[in-house]
Design a protein around this nucleic acid. Structure first.
Length: 502
RNA sequence: GGCGGCGUAGCUCAGUUGGUCAGAGCACACGGCUCAUAAUCGUGUUGUCGCGGGUUCGAGUCCCGCCGCCGCUACCA
């Protein structure tokens, strides 16, 4: 059985979940759901990153222990994901014992392999970023991202000998052209590597809120270096070799472009240093922009909490919008107006209305019993084309194309109804043929939208009289033309997506 | 500064290796229909494909220059 291991970044707990987090997580979720329908053995991982100075500082400000602070923020993430129907198979927290064990095992191995050495580091540090800056990067002497003062830091650190992996990384990139996508991001990473790599500091003595360095009690690992290892922790690295080997390295890391360097340079090198293969695939998504600016708390644009949107529009419409509006890999505008426009056009007018009109005519012309489809239907080709295009698109991490292809079938079905005008015909074989085809198209549409809108898909499935859940069907076998049996009671129901006026 | 990318209808964008490539969706207009959530179906308008040269029988599609916009440029983590 093919395996599909997909990860989101683990989210830093100093920030409440917002649309940017939801974007990455919903995309990973839809991919996971698609692959489950393909029959793959799927492992979908998300979680939280809980170490580092920023968390310790935030906890202190609230007179809480870092652990208690993290617990509180983590619960907001888990609730947010429940609220978005996220189907993750595991939720990892970097403060868990299993993660400490994996990190220590992983980095001890790198140390033993001779790729970690002690050195002195000094630099200008922004606590908010968990990052160092050079003087010319500063804006008015402050952090360019947060606008906050930076601190001069100097300490003895252990350094990872990243420079030793320059050639191996280049070779890896050149022999694995699909390892990082989209191509533009791959080139960005590769050119960065070709520009020369320097060793990187991976431990801290200035704080204790982190994973202890096993060979030196005075140090904890720098937050980024423990965070990346989560992808291995969750599949049993260091404790369950068989399981780990089953899932690694065939992983798909879905990440945002702001953490490209960590995932496309540091992480593969760390894996090499530890003696394991680098991740098979890193897919880099873009940013959702509000008024052209990144969603970021310091820019005060994170007031867009996922739950506010789902309460307003519903869970599936928001999932749909996140998947459909912007090609994964590109930046895109995210706006209320944009959501309303797409909601009305795609969900209310096209899909929702199609379900309504079909159910109504089945009610009036077929006594509410759905007829079987015609095997020679003119909709058979559009249906198989939509299936093929969707499958291809999901395989390329292009949910927006998969959904676009699915909507072309919805359009063909609306047009077919218009051409046949079954509402004008007397009940009989002609009417049955038209409506059977429409019901079959809706059945296939239900399957194709399941990764994006699982609840809606199940509801359409139910309304047209089918039992079970479309998520349990198999693609492509169950999505080929002719699967609707006919003779099932079709329910009218209320509008799936009431049209929005604003 | 260096490297990379982008600039195509009002909006968002598709446009492989040069020859129906001037397109799609939305918006808009007109027409049809009235089963449906004033939904749907059909037809259509708008573009000097950033600007200027060049290569070619022929260039959004290749080359040069220019203008505008954007990304990356860790650093002795």
């Amino acid at each position: 059985m093919p395996r599909f291991y997909v990860t989101t970044p683990i989210y830093y707990v100093n920030d409440a979940p917002h649309v940017g987090h939801a974007y990455a997580t919903v995309n990973a979720d839809a991919l996971a759901r698609w692959h489950r329908m393909l029959g793959d053995d799927v492992f979908f991982l998300t979680g939280t990153d809980e170490h580092g100075a920023k968390v310790a500082e935030a906890a202190a400000e609230h007179q809480m222990t870092p652990n208690a602070w993290a617990d509180q923020v983590v619960s907001r993430f888990t609730r947010a994901w429940d609220g978005l129907d996220i189907s993750n198979d595991d939720f990892i927290r970097t403060t868990e014992p299993r993660h400490h064990l994996a990190v220590q095992e992983f980095l001890q191995r790198i140390y033993d392999n001779g790729f970690i050495e002690l050195d002195t580091y000094s630099g200008l540090y922004c606590v908010s970023c968990e990052d160092y800056y050079t003087e010319d990067q500063l804006v008015d002497g402050n952090c360019p991202v947060h606008g906050r003062p930076v601190v001069q830091m100097q300490e003895d650190n252990y350094f990872f000998k990243l420079s030793a992996f320059e050639d191996r990384l280049i070779e890896w990139y050149e022999s694995n052209p699909d390892a990082v996508g989209p191509a533009g991001k791959r080139n960005e990473a590769l050119s960065f590597i070709k520009g020369g790599l320097r060793n990187i500091s991976i431990t801290r003595t200035s704080l204790t809120w982190g994973v202890p360095v096993p060979w030196d009690k005075d140090h904890v690992f720098y937050v980024w270096y423990d965070a990346l290892v989560n992808y291995l922790t969750a599949i049993g690295y260091g404790t369950d070799e068989e399981r780990c080997n089953a899932w690694w390295p065939a992983v798909h890391h879905l990440i945002g472009k702001e953490i490209l360097r960590f995932h496309c340079v540091w992480w593969p090198a760390m894996c090499m240093a530890a003696g394991i293969d680098p991740p098979a695939n890193v897919f880099v998504h873009g940013w959702l922009l509000v008024g052209g600016q990144k969603l970021s708390k310091s820019l005060k644009l994170t007031e867009i909490a996922p739950e506010v949107l789902t309460e307003d529009f519903g869970v599936d419409p928001i999932r749909y919008h996140l998947l459909r509006e912007v090609p994964l890999g590109s930046d895109g505008e995210f706006s209320y107006e944009g959501i309303v426009a797409r909601y009305n056009a795609d969900l209310a007018n096209n899909l929702g209305n199609l379900v309504s009109r079909v159910a109504t005519v089945v009610g009036s012309k077929c006594a509410g019993i759905g007829p079987a489809p015609n095997h020679q239907s003119a909709l058979a080709d559009p249906a198989s084309a939509a299936l093929a295009a969707a499958a291809d698109a999901w395989g390329r991490f292009a949910p927006h194309e998969a959904l676009s292809a699915t909507w072309s079938l919805i359009g063909s079905t609306n047009a077919a109804l218009e051409a046949a005008e079954p509402w004008k015909l007397e009940p009989g074989p002609d009417v049955d043929a038209v409506l059977g085809d429409a019901l079959e198209a809706l059945r296939i549409v239900s399957l194709l939208i399941t990764p994006a809108m699982p609840s809606t898909a199940a509801e359409i499935w139910r309304r047209i009289g089918l039992s079970g859940n479309p998520a349990d069907r198999r693609i492509p076998a169950d999505a080929s033309w002719g699967g609707y049996p006919g003779g099932l009671a079709v329910e009218k129901g209320s509008p799936l997506f009431p049209r929005r006026s604003t």
